[in-house]
Each structure stands twice: as structure tokens, then as C-alpha cells.
Nucleic acid binder design. Sequence first.
DNA 1: ATTGATTAGTTGTCATTAGCAACTATCTTA
DNA 2: TAAGATAGTTGCTAATGACAACTAATCAAT
Lengths: 150, 150
Amino acid sequence: MVKKSLQHAAAELYAAATAFIRIYQFRDRDQALRFGLTVVQAYTLDILLTAGGVGLTGLAQALRLDKSTTSRVVSGMTRRGLVEWSRPEHDRRAKEILASREGKRRYVRLRRAIVEDNARLLASYSPAARQAAITILWQLAARAAGSSQS
Amino acid sequence: MVKKSLQHAAAELYAAATAFIRIYQFRDRDQALRFGLTVVQAYTLDILLTAGGVGLTGLAQALRLDKSTTSRVVSGMTRRGLVEWSRPEHDRRAKEILASREGKRRYVRLRRAIVEDNARLLASYSPAARQAAITILWQLAARAAGSSQS
DNA sequence: ATTGATTAGTTGTCATTAGCAACTATCTTA
DNA sequence: TAAGATAGTTGCTAATGACAACTAATCAAT
């Protein structure tokens, strides 16, 4: 009955992951709005702060959005003072996009707020259980990333 | 150093959950599109199939969307034959929204495809590890739901 | 029973999100 | 240097999402 229990576990994982994702998404969206950011803007800032300067095409790939959509997202964020960009000397078609001071400020605050929520969530776990939860999420993410490689 | 390790775990959870959610969201979106559904439509069908008939206001709450947006989502899905609705006798303002045969068919297929992905993901885990992953996701979801109760 | 308040959905308006296709400008390479 | 590839932008269309204003039906209170 190994097959059957695997199928069952896979269905359970579907339900659990769906519930988990919905709740986290809504929570994160609410928090982002509180800091004057949309989900896409927060995600963009996360990428920019992790990667340093990024071009529009690279940003589009990281966001999994069309270049055109990404272009408009960047326009909006520039208008709102969340990002800045310049033309690199070696390629004057390209954009070098960076988080602005304000963008960074908001993202850092947002991240801090979410981490605090997480701390409340984990408070009653033992350190070992905390670590187990984190490890499992990383593993599942890594495996899903590996299998859905486009 | 208990406080510090909690903070550290909370930050780790942020990173892990973000990675997990992004990858699953994209995977699910791609799968949904393959079956001719958007994410919102799949979510709607899930709610309708779980709850039976639902009114628009209830659906909007479950989707966490504005009534107006929900109304238009239902219009689109009706146009595409994914849902059907009727006026209940006891309240002729209301809508009783149900998944259509076609909507149900597509959702079931989508779900099956995602569960199969999940089975591949879990295949190399021991049964105990599978159960642990599922339990942790449920727990984190339940806790987050409890703390973010609006 | 009639009026007033509440509730269920819809529609108008606006901004954003999203993708495809067509476009300009700038490199790269043959 | 001409042809092709690449970086971004803009036009178009549809969907998403929210707020406010609206119609229609039900409920409550006299």
C-alpha cells in the first residue's frame, strides 16, 4: 500500500499547502498595504535589494512577468519614488534599476513586521520544531523549483 | 539567548515561506492556465465545490475580494460556463452560485495534476517525513489564521 | 400595513496587472 | 557596414481590484 499512502499524502499536501499559501498571501498583502506597497512592489524591492542593480529583462524573469508589464511596474515605482534607474555606460539601451532609499526603507519595515508576526507564530514551538518547520519549507521549495524548471 | 534564536528563526521562516509560496504559486498558476482556468477561478471553484451553493457576499468574503470584483468574476465564469446560479425562493435578491459540470471537471483535473506534482515531490520522503511536512503546514496555517483574524 | 433601515447584487469609474505584438534605439557580429 | 540580436517602450485588449453610488428585495418597528 505504499503507492496509496503516497497518493494520500500528496492530496493532503495539496490541501495543506493551499491553506498555508492563502493565509500567508493575505497576511503579507495586508502588511504590504500598510506600508504603502503592493505585493508586486514588495517582491520587486526584495529582488533589487538581494541582487543589487538589475536590468529590466532580468527583473522580468525574476518576477515571472512580461517585459512590458515589468516596464510599467518600474514606471509606477519610479513615479512613487520607490526605485531609481540609470543607463549603464557599457550599454545605453539598458536600465540599471536600484531600490531608492525610500523603497528600501519601506521594504525593510515590511519585512520586520512580517518577521514579528512569524516570531509570534513560532514562539510556542521548541527550537528544534522551529528548525524543522523551516527546513521542510526550504526543502519543499527546492524540490518544487527543481521539478518545475521551465 | 532564547529571544535571539526566536528572532533568527522568524527571519528564516520569512525567507523559507516566501520562497515556498512563490514557487508554488507559479506552479499552480501554470497548471491552472493549462486547464483553462485563472488562479481566482480555480480558487472560486474550490470554494464552490467545498461549500455547495454560496451567495455572492459569502463568496466575496471567502475570496477576500470586494463584492463588485466578485460579481464580475462570477459574470465571467458564467459566460465561460464554469458556474451557474439561480435565485433562491426565500430571497429573490440573492444568488445561489454553483460550479457547473464543466467547471467541476476542470477543477478536478487541475487538482489531480497538482496532486501528481506533489506525489513526485514527496516520493523520496519517508512516510513519517511526509506526515511531518503536512502537519507543519497545517499548523502554521492554523496559527497564522488565528493571529490575523480581522 | 406602511415606512425606514438593512442587505444582496450590479454598475460606473479609475488604476493596476497582464500578455501579445509592434515599435525604436542600441549593440554585435559576420 | 549591413544584418541580426537585444533592451525597453508603447498600443491594444482583457481581467483584477477597490470605492462609491445605485436598484431591488427583505426585515423591523411602529
